[in-house]
């Protein structure tokens, strides 16, 4: 492999890792802070992509409006679902799993029946391709990277620097103690779940231009996002960042040496080994037990 190709693969891999990071953030927040395996996550991505199609492509509003709408609608949907369904199942792993799986089916089949069975295309909001020597990068990938980092920073600020964030962390560490301090943990739960779902919707809107939007869009993201979250550690946002980069760079470089199927097999094997040796993931937030 020539050095220029290696460089190109590393750049492409890095760009892809920000896509993976963004699509995983909502999942890791709900899993890490609420102990809920949100199987509806990838269908929320699909819904966000549809919102992007209708707001940006069909209605012709600015892309940023589509992103914000996707976030807002998904946030509200998340809040509603949490109040109506999820809040009854905290601490019951298999029940939350079934409940979120059911929601995912509702979303997917709902999209199929209501929004039709054809491919919907969302144009790239920016189309230029940058070139440095022999290395190319689509400008939209840069936008996604920026957005991804921005969302990560905002989330960190929210969790570590605001009162709400303190409440979320407190509720995660010791629920009854938090409640006895006069904090309404139910409200905190709703907010956390809704935020996680909102991020999923936002991410869905961001990935919409990369392919076509159909009711099957969620399926293709299931493996990657869950694998990423497990590898990174379910309660660490930095872990998700690190594992996104690790996974995508490895896939990219190994793919350059052989092909992308082999690359995925190898990376999956590595994830299995990592999970065996470090069941909490590569990076685990230090917490009191």
């Amino acid at each position: 492999m020539s050095p220029s190709m290696l460089l190109q693969l590393l750049v492409s891999g890095l760009a892809s890792s920000f896509v993976l990071l963004l699509t995983s953030l909502g999942l890791v927040i709900i899993l890490g802070y609420m102990k809920v395996v949100n199987l509806a996550h990838t269908e929320m991505l699909m819904s966000g992509a549809f919102i992007c199609y209708y707001v940006y492509q069909a209605a012709g509003l600015p892309f940023i409006v589509a992103l914000l709408t996707a976030f807002a609608v998904s946030f509200l949907f998340g809040a509603l679902v949490e109040r109506l369904i999820i809040c009854h199942f905290y601490g019951k792993m298999s029940e939350t799993l079934l409940a979120t799986y059911a929601i995912s089916i509702l979303l997917k089949q709902g999209a199929l029946l209501l929004l039709g069975k054809n491919y919907k295309k969302v144009d790239y909001p920016v189309k230029a391709v940058f070139q440095w020597g022999s290395v190319y990068l689509e400008s939209y990938k840069l936008v996604v990277a920026g957005l991804s980092v921005g969302v990560l920073l905002l989330t960190l600020l929210l969790i570590y620097k605001t009162k709400t964030g303190r409440m979320i962390r407190a509720a995660m560490q010791n629920r009854s103690m938090t409640e006895s301090l006069g904090i309404n943990t139910k409200k905190v739960d709703t907010l956390t779940f809704a935020y996680g779902m909102g991020l999923a919707g936002l991410a869905g809107a961001v990935i919409a231009p990369l392919s076509t939007v159909t009711y099957t869009l969620g399926e293709s993201w299931l493996t990657n996002t869950f694998m990423n979250v497990v590898m990174g550690g379910v309660s660490s946002l930095f872990g998700t960042l690190a594992s996104s980069v690790l996974i995508q760079e490895s896939v990219s470089v190994i793919s350059g040496l052989s092909n992308s199927v082999t690359a995925q097999i190898i990376v999956l094997l590595v994830v299995i080994v990592v999970v065996r040796l470090k069941p909490d993931g590569l990076f685990t937030a230090k917490e009191r037990r």
Binding site: L9, S12, S220, L222
Partner: peptide
């Protein structure tokens, strides 16, 4: 289920 073709394109 590939969604990202950046490696292939490279």
């Amino acid at each position: 289920d590939t969604t990202d073709f950046s490696d292939v394109i490279a």
